[in-house]
């Protein structure tokens, strides 16, 4: 019982800031003695948001709310408007009508943008195609990245930092430049690969390989750009692995190949999941690589959104496209976020 009374007597400021907020405590004591004593907790509680712990949290929280969360709500709102020949090019959702006698608030929820997306074949196909491309790219990244990360983690301890730096270094160079480098190589007319193959006589000059402006080029571009995102979490995971487990498996008569599948791979699953999310989710919405490498006939949702926005100037439709895209991605994004939070907790 006395515990409860203690808590009730303690000033609110101390409860909120978890440190002796001497100024606020004094202020609260003074307020409690005054006429508006009942307002004291509210006043101090509000003030404490701007000092100490509250302020530390509020700074990044406020920024992220304003420039990450609220923009999504605006996208959602505009996805229900209609396109219009005005600046900005969409109709208002909420209309206030004042005809002198009465005062109306009209809310027009226009679902036609969503209907367009669901009924028009091009949109459905673009979503499916994007998911397919992202899935294949993720699988290819895993196929190339896992052996790399594994070899790095098993390499001599003295060269590991160098290998790690070699994986990170391309990530520091402009991704646009790296995509451009592949365009130089893969071009049909006067591309380096074709020039090389023709000069050694593998193919004839009349029939060069057509890779650029096909899906193949796009896969090369995506896998190339996203490979470090796959290798890094895998390496971090494999490097931490307890090697005595493999020795134990060997002692119990397990062959290395079997030990790899039974011990190493299951232990690497958190790294595999993290790497796959880091590749798959952004790849679904990829715009630059398909635009530069895959030619006009590969339709992906990122390009569709960009054309709706930039060429068609149909902002409500572009907003609806991104709402649907986000709804498709929200589950993988939440799983990714949860896994990252758990990994960080584990590292504590």
């Amino acid at each position: 019982m006395s515990m409860d009374r203690d808590a009730a007597d303690r000033p609110t400021a101390a409860l909120i800031t978890h440190e002796d907020g001497s100024f606020l405590e004094k202020l609260e004591m003074r307020l409690r003695r005054g006429r508006f004593a009942f307002l004291a907790p509210a006043i101090v509680g509000t003030l404490s948001l701007f000092t100490g712990r509250g302020a530390v949290i509020a700074l990044p929280y406020g920024f992220l709310l304003a420039f990450f969360l609220i923009p999504f709500l605006i996208v959602l709102k505009i996805s229900f408007s209609e396109t219009a020949l005005s600046i900005p090019p969409y109709t208002e959702l909420i209309e206030v009508v004042d005809d002198g006698f009465e005062y109306f608030v009209n809310i027009k929820l226009n679902l036609s943008n969503y209907w367009t997306i669901l009924s028009e074949d091009t949109y459905v196909r673009a979503y499916l195609n994007s998911a397919k491309i992202a899935a294949i790219s993720t699988a290819l990244c895993l196929l190339i990245g896992f052996p790399m990360a594994y070899a790095m983690a098993r390499a001599d301890e003295t060269i590991r930092p160098t290998l790690l730096m070699l994986v990170i270094l391309p990530f520091w160079t402009s991704f646009l430049i790296r995509v451009y480098a592949w365009i130089v190589i893969l071009k049909t007319e006067g591309g380096l690969l074709n020039t090389f193959l023709i000069s050694i006589g593998v193919i004839s000059a009349d029939d060069p390989l057509r890779i650029l402006n096909t899906e193949w080029a796009m896969y090369i571009g995506i896998v190339y750009s996203y490979l470090p995102f796959m290798v890094l979490p895998l390496y971090a995971n494999l490097e931490r692995m307890d090697m005595t487990l493999l020795e134990a498996a060997a002692d119990l008569g397990c062959r290395p190949i079997k030990a790899f599948w039974v011990v190493t791979v299951p232990l690497a699953i958190p790294g595999i999941i993290a790497g796959c999310f880091l590749v798959f989710i952004p790849a679904v919405g990829e715009y630059v690589i398909p635009e530069l490498m895959s030619g006009d006939n590969v339709r992906v949702i990122g390009r569709k959104l960009f054309t709706d926005f930039a060429s068609e100037r149909n902002w409500p439709l572009a907003a609806a496209v991104s709402v649907v895209l986000l709804m498709i991605l929200v589950i993988p994004i939440m799983l990714f976020q949860r896994q990252q939070a758990r990994l960080q907790e584990a590292g504590r």
């Binding site: 990450f68 952004p282 919405g285 926005f309 991104s322 976020q337 939070a341």
Partner: peptide, 17 residues
């Protein structure tokens, strides 16, 4: 964590709007 994987077209459009 979400901005680490958010497709850029979505972030770009939402900020523009």
């Amino acid at each position: 964590y979400a901005p680490l994987v958010m497709p850029e077209v979505i972030t770009g459009l939402s900020l523009l709007l």
